[in-house]
Amino acid sequence: MLRNRELRAALIFISPAILFFLVFWAAPVLLALYYSFTDWQVGQTETWAGLANYTKLLSDPQFHTAVLASMSIVLIVMAVSLVLALGVAIVLADPRIQAGRLWRVSVIVPVVTDWVATGLVFQLFFLPNQGVLASFGQSLGIDALNSVRWTTDAGLAPWAIAIFVIWKQTGLYAIFFLAGLKGIPGDIIEASKVDGANAWQTFWRIRWPMMTPLTVFVVVLSFVTTLGLFEPVYLLTGGGPAGATRTLPLFLFENFFTFGNSGYASAAGIYFLLLSLMFTFTASRILKDRDES
């Protein structure tokens, strides 16, 4: 139990954080919630519209496309980058491999670079005929690579975006996994070896279960951040072709800023928030249940 004085001190110390949270998180969310029930158009006064925006969204094919586009990119990114990250972490954590600091740094470099700068590089990377991939194909004699429309083919565009995001984010998840692996006490591993467990068994029965809380965190983090990504989509495809990669953030952005449908965009934002919360809740429940069984 905190004594009164300690409690007061604690409150004083966390008050800036609380204030920050209130001003930059709670207030905007509450405002968006309010506006989502209005017909607000940028620059005009709003009137109450009840659930109109929400029902309209549910029947808006553009919104459906946006949710689908977002989900497909998120799924590709999560599936690939989490597996890749775990692999990288295992390699980096293995004492026999002796991964130096340079390797660890190289893993984190894409994470700390700027989305826009790297986005422009990836634009050039995917450009047909003149781009990096196309030139690579030319040097290998694979002419077919010239005409691959990475960012303008409805089927490939989500992949192009996902490749960029995976390159950019895997390092971060790898660092988390690495920390998790390193955090497992050595005596437990040793005990398992004494009991005759092989490396495979040690991983699946000792390391992996012990990392569950961390995994939940990384899964949720990757879902939420990827869902919210704007720059890579905007830079690589601009939502195209024909809206195939017009993800939720782009939908929100376009409705708010280009069309001025602010109330409508706010409602989409609230759906967006609900989607993130639902996933977070479900993911932690599933992993916890598994952990307990």
């Binding site: 429309r149 083919d153 409805a154 195209g240 072709p241 024909a242 809206g243 280009t258 069309f259």
Partner: peptide, 17 residues
């Protein structure tokens, strides 16, 4: 505007899809 965005999609359908 919204009709403009719809037009973009339509032209995209022609030249990309």
């Amino acid at each position: 505007d919204e009709p403009g965005a719809a037009l973009v999609r339509a032209i995209d359908r022609v030249i990309y899809d």
